[in-house]
Nucleic acid binder design. Sequence first.
DNA 1: AAAGGAATGTCAATTCATTGACATTATTTT
DNA 2: AAAATAATGTCAATGAATTGACATTCCTTT
Lengths: 216, 216
Amino acid sequence: METKEISQAVIGRLPRYFRYLGELKDEGIERISSQELSDIMKVTASQIRQDFNNFGGFGQQGYGYKVEYLYEEIGKILGMNQTHNLIIIGAGNLGQALANYMNFERRGFLFKGMFDNNPALFGKKIRDMEVKPMEELHDFVKENNIDIAVLTIPKTSAVAVAEQLVKDGIKGIWNFAHVDLNVPKEIQVENVHLSDSLMKLTYNIIRYEEENSISQ
Amino acid sequence: METKEISQAVIGRLPRYFRYLGELKDEGIERISSQELSDIMKVTASQIRQDFNNFGGFGQQGYGYKVEYLYEEIGKILGMNQTHNLIIIGAGNLGQALANYMNFERRGFLFKGMFDNNPALFGKKIRDMEVKPMEELHDFVKENNIDIAVLTIPKTSAVAVAEQLVKDGIKGIWNFAHVDLNVPKEIQVENVHLSDSLMKLTYNIIRYEEENSISQ
DNA sequence: AAAGGAATGTCAATTCATTGACATTATTTT
DNA sequence: AAAATAATGTCAATGAATTGACATTCCTTT
């Protein structure tokens, strides 16, 4: 079987397709063409077809795409048909918010534990899960087949914790700490750098204002 | 003055440069070459120079870049030398987490208010700021010169709220709702779709595992 | 069952982003 | 003060991503 690399540009668009297709499915729509999807999603029909073709193509010529089938297939590609054992490290506001906010379970993310080094939080229940001390983290990861660690701890400790998690056998890290982790390339890292995102927003706001004042 | 468009690819890298330069500055490092920065940040020196040149270039030939100067200049480009009035709409876990988590003020983001439609939350203080009912939102935005609205509300209401915010004169929206907002292009939107990010992570985990099992 | 129409899959062309190379210019050393 | 060195700024080349075009294939209608 040939292993052709699929670009992260394509991967980055899949969740959005998945979301729109889920909505179409919920609306009871059974079939859609790339052109119709293009109109709804505001991307070119050509890109949609090109993207899907990375995975062999899911449509029928002359007909279009079956919404439910396409939804399922993209879901499989994204691993939404599997379960993933997940822990949250850092039980501060953000960690708690993520634990509560996500309807993880609906997508196969099994919330297995929550860790912090603040004794005041030990035993506190978040989503029926007691916060455990950091000392227990590494054994827990090893013994419970944890796939994904969510890092919502300060950047000062994030790098070291990540390195240890790698040794414990973690497969992926969802990193909210404001630092770049230094892990082997076989460990997948997805960064969510919130302040970077906010800075992009301010750049674009300022840029728009400047453009306007120049043309006045 | 010429208005040359700077690609979002470049903008997206600026906050990371800003972060590394801030750290270098804090370490007391005064000068750095694109090659040294390249080694630290794991991007090509060519890209670094190319990126900076979009803004005219900040270095001195034969010398390199003055860390503090470069830090300040990139900060200005990102609007970090200005203040931005900001409100959070949706005082649930995520909204509260963002209010507490960010050291907004250090970067010029002035937290001006928090809104929700859950009466149980009205008056609750978050960061010395009482949660206000949604009814007061639109007048508040108009009267207090709000630049940025952070949307941490369910997707069902996000689209309508965003449309009204545009009428109220908002400039940018930091959108955590799991939906694409439909606003005029002069309004800047920065999406943080957390579950999209998590799906990318699972894709990459699965992909790595498949690659490995094939080569076994 | 055959003809016509519709929409995919795919190839080619174009646009955009990244990398490489080097002339130029400033700094540093002698 | 001059020569040597260092590193930028910039141009050209390469590579990647997106868009456009159309032949092929399947569906639908008659």
